[in-house]
């Protein structure tokens, strides 16, 4: 296993190096996607399958597709993004020395950090029995620190609003060009794969209670299904946002908050769940969160306010 880990670390370092040094934008994107694959492998070697799932869905998958689409837009925009003159050797040396110093400082500090089992991690694992779900990561996200998770979702919503405000330069090609795919394989692929991706996303959300998975990973895979439909021309961005879409976007935050508030008279604290009801409540919250996260990611991909069905 030692050899495997060393080789993995070597490949990751080489890929990361190539990703930032290669001149061609397309090659950099391709290298980044493959780097995501290797990072997912390294997370599994570090006993963190949850992070491997997140890396697979968001890092390598969704981000790779987003970068490929962005590359198209940048290339179609014409050759006007000429590079300026390269920075002077002094600037480059200063940047290199600074980066090495920062990296060394991080390595030294992280090396001296002592893992204390009395800290939050150990406490969380000890009180897992009270959480209502078997999966430690889900228990921490939705029960022990649910307040933080709620605020994170708020951040995600703000990110979407910010991206939509800035969207105009990166908007996708008009629908007429999007549907101009001539390959007869594409419609079949989209038809066959979209239900599978949806199934996998739903499964991951549900599985979050007892094995790695959960709202974030499941939501990312659900967004992947939407992206598949957009790429296949069955779904497109729209400038108008429907009431239903808005409701779905805030569904996660609303359900999370409302459940937390409604149970206050029973338990006496915000977001305290009564014993016995924890599991159904968590699953409800997980699914509403996943729907909102998936839609948010999909809208970040299309870069539009709303969605519309296929132009017939």
């Amino acid at each position: 296993m030692m050899v495997f880990d060393s080789l993995l670390a070597l490949i990751i370092a080489a890929l990361a190096w190539r990703c930032v040094t290669v001149r061609d934008l397309f090659q950099a994107i391709v290298t980044f996607i493959v780097l995501g694959l290797m990072l997912a492998l390294s997370w599994t070697r570090l006993d963190a399958p949850d992070l491997a799932l997140a890396e697979a869905g968001i890092g390598a998958g969704l981000l790779g597709v987003l970068l490929l689409s962005t590359w198209r837009v940048v290339r179609d925009a014409g050759p006007d993004q000429g590079e300026g003159p390269p920075p002077s050797p002094w600037v480059r040396t200063a940047a290199a020395v600074g980066s090495i110093a920062l990296g060394t400082a991080f390595a030294v500090v992280l090396h001296t950090v002592e893992v204390d089992s009395d800290r939050a991690g150990g406490l969380a694992l000890e009180s897992l029995g009270e959480a209502g779900v078997e999966q430690p990561v889900t228990a921490v996200l939705l029960n022990f620190r649910s307040y933080d998770t709620l605020l994170e979702l708020g951040v995600l919503l703000m990110a979407l609003i910010g991206a939509v405000l800035l969207r105009s330069p990166l908007i996708h090609r008009p629908a007429a060009e999007d549907t101009g795919t001539e390959s007869p394989l594409l419609p079949v692929l989209v038809t066959v794969f979209t239900p599978l991706v949806l199934l996998m996303g739903t499964f991951l959300v549900w599985a979050g209670a007892h094995s790695p998975g959960g709202a974030f990973q499941g939501g990312a895979v659900l967004a992947g299904a939407g992206v598949m439909l957009v790429l296949g021309g069955r779904l497109g961005g729209d400038a108008q946002v429907s009431l239903l879409l808005r409701a779905l976007l805030i569904l996660g935050v609303s359900v999370f908050t409302v459940i937390g508030l409604l149970l206050m008279p029973l338990e006496g604290a915000f977001m305290a769940y009564p014993e016995g009801l924890v599991y159904p409540l968590m699953v409800t919250i997980e699914f509403s969160l996943a729907l909102s996260i998936g839609l948010t990611l999909l809208l970040l991909f299309t870069g539009t306010n709303g969605l519309r069905g296929a132009p017939a």
């Binding site: 597709v65 992206v227 296949g232």
Partner: peptide, 10 residues
């Protein structure tokens, strides 16, 4: 599969 589709689109 999704990445392949993203590459061959139009």
């Amino acid at each position: 599969a999704l990445i392949a589709v993203a590459f061959v689109r139009h």
